[in-house]
């Protein structure tokens, strides 16, 4: 578990999958910019958002940029706290082993505490 967050910490919640809308990409952009500005950023993948972590999310037929390359860059930006909504994962019949990155699975109760611990939360 991470240390308790301070005022500069930011929690970015991602609730959309990699295709069908630009929510995921624009949410990740915000997270990367915040990290580049020296904020300590945690990502929380919720609901359908957990599919962002499925491997090899590349350019689709619509020519939208794939998000896998961005997720691979997270470590370079020091975005190391990756939380996944346990329920969202099991609802889709997925497990942690199916995902492309090391994540921490959290229950709904723990999710609530993460939300209240962060002064700044951005939801996409």
């Amino acid at each position: 578990m991470q240390e308790s967050p301070d005022d500069s910490d930011l929690l970015v919640i991602l609730r959309h999958g990699p295709h069908g809308s630009s929510w995921l990409r624009e949410g990740l952009d915000a997270a990367l910019v915040a990290a580049a500005f020296g904020r300590c950023v945690s990502l929380l993948f919720m609901g359908e958002g957990v599919t962002a972590l499925m491997p090899e999310q590349q350019v689709g037929p619509l020519g939208q940029k794939g998000t896998a390359a961005t997720l691979e860059m997270l470590e370079m930006y020091d975005i190391e706290t990756l939380l996944v909504d346990e329920q969202g994962l099991s609802d889709l019949g997925l497990s942690r082993d199916d995902l492309m990155l090391e994540v921490e699975c959290v229950s709904s109760e723990v999710l609530a505490s993460f939300l209240s611990e962060h002064r700044l939360v951005l939801t996409f």
Binding site: L10, V33, L120
Partner: peptide, 11 residues
């Protein structure tokens, strides 16, 4: 403007 402004506002 850039997204940095958003982060700055949040802070």
């Amino acid at each position: 403007t850039g997204l940095g402004q958003l982060i700055d506002l949040g802070t």
